[in-house]
Computed example of a mutant assay.
Amino acid sequence: MPRPRKVLIAVEDTPYYHVVSRCVRRSFLCGVDSVTGENYQHRRAWIEQRIRLLASLFAIDICAYAIMSNHLHIVVKLQPQQATDWSSQDVLLRWTSIHKGTLLVQRYLKNSTLGAAELDTLHSCIDVYRQRLTSLSWFMKCLNEPIARQANKEDGCTGHFWEARFKSQALLTEEALLSCMAYVDLNPVRADMAKTPEESDYTSIKERISPSFDLAQAITEQTNQGNLQHFYYPLKPLMQFEGEQIDKTQLGILFSLSDYLELVDYTGRAIRPDKKGSIAEHLPLIMRRLNLNQLGWLTRATQFETRYTTLFSRRAHRDTA
């Protein structure tokens, strides 16, 4: 029986979540249609642009993402504390980047004079918008709905584009986070869409290795498509790797980027009979440094969705240690 979203997403338990959205009937609506031969690969760029722009507006950081031909993966870190530092003006500008806002909000942003009662209503709107800008559900709503409308418009049809609401998995341990990120970044390799991670288009690992995201182009295209009202913010970088733990507050991933790349490379070299692609066999020293059980790690990182339906729990971590 499906569980309420508020039960599945609880920042007090963990800020890290793995999110999956699949195209209706798992059709290749972002790839090559096997029946008509039509190529919809350009839609993967739409989704990548949308993810990166929304992350810069929401109090949500992106750890990893992979946009495939019939589904997408995102690993996020919820950062509600970021929103507490935003001014009222900042909240309104962020929200109206993707929504028009109420007439009262529009009047306020045009510097119109508001009465006391109107200001009270405005502050209530700001509180609602601030909360929404920290919500994973609203993030996915603002991602999926415009993409569906745009694709339907291109195809001259109506109906569902995504098969259901997004699925989410809580990542309660550092190992859960790293194995899920590796699983996501290796999706194109496993599907034999790319030979190596650095050749995997529309993935976070390619962005980390060779940054090529064009913010100006993304803003122009999303605005022309009617998916963006305005955008006044710099592009928020992907969640940073911070290496070894040090004696100060750390907001990034407690792992070095070079070690993560080695880890992904090692994991990708494991041959899976149920997948088309892999990387040549190699065993880096990173596994010994992390003191991880190699078989357990490979099982978790290559079969993440099937083994953990909604939760990668501390109990599962203990049982396989």
Rank of each mutant, 00 (worst) to 15 (best):
L257F: 12
K195F: 12
D247L: 13
K206T: 03
S204A: 06
L257I: 02
K195W: 15
E244V: 12
Q240P: 14
M239G: 07
L228F: 04
F213G: 03
N227W: 13
S212N: 05
D247K: 14
A191S: 04
P211R: 03
I253E: 04
Q240N: 06
L215H: 01
Q245H: 08
G252N: 06
L238W: 02
Y232L: 14
C180T: 00
L257K: 04
T249Y: 13
M193H: 14
E262G: 09
Y183R: 11
Y232H: 10
F255T: 00
S204P: 11
V184Y: 05
N187R: 10
T220A: 10
Y266D: 11
L235T: 00
A194Q: 01
Y232G: 10
L228S: 00
D201T: 07
L263C: 05
D259F: 08
I253R: 05
S204M: 12
H230I: 08
Y233R: 09
L186S: 02
P211T: 03
L254M: 10
S258E: 03
T196E: 15
F231H: 04
L261N: 05
Y260E: 03
M193C: 14
E221Q: 11
S256M: 08
S258V: 07
F241T: 02
E207M: 14
M181F: 04
N187G: 04
P234A: 14
E221T: 06
Y232A: 12
Q245T: 11
G243V: 04
N227I: 07
K206I: 05
A216V: 05
D192E: 05
G226K: 02
V184S: 11
L263D: 00
K236E: 09
T196G: 15
V189N: 00
D185G: 15
L254A: 10
L238E: 01
M181D: 00
Y233G: 02
T249A: 07
L215K: 02
F231C: 11
I209E: 09
P211A: 09
M193T: 05
T223F: 15
